[in-house]
Amino acid sequence: MTATTYSDEVVACPPRAGTLYDVLELILDRGMVIDVFIRVSLVGIEILKIDARIVVASVDTYLRFAEACNRLDLERDSGSTTVPELIGGGAAKSIGKRKVRRAAESVGDTVRKAVGGDDDEEPEERPKKRRAPARGSESRRRRVEA
């Protein structure tokens, strides 16, 4: 076993509530509850919570990559670089965050499958996007910003 040091990984402390991921369980599990009010349409919130955590984590990972990408001195035209390319490519390695990379590997499927991800796109928009494959990377980037 090799002992590896990632000095830039420790103490990621956003001073404000920047990442939803870190406060998700507070929003879903704390806060005031009034018994006669119902949590409509949130049937299965316990399962949902886990799914939402995965999705939010994934999206936040994208966002962190996007932010890191902005700081990087990229050789390529940044306009042609999509976040998924970055994750598969060299940027992920140079950022060197083991955990982020590990999370990112499973992102693609999860974002599409789990709750919240797909739903942010209006259903009626989908056929339009399919007919315009040239805009594929554009829609991916929009999901990242969603």
Binding site: L20, V40, S41, L42, K49, V56, V59, G116, D120
Partner: peptide, 11 residues
């Protein structure tokens, strides 16, 4: 309608 724990709505 159709309220769920979406990222958008949580935010």
């Amino acid at each position: 309608p159709d309220l769920r724990a979406r990222r958008r709505d949580l935010l």
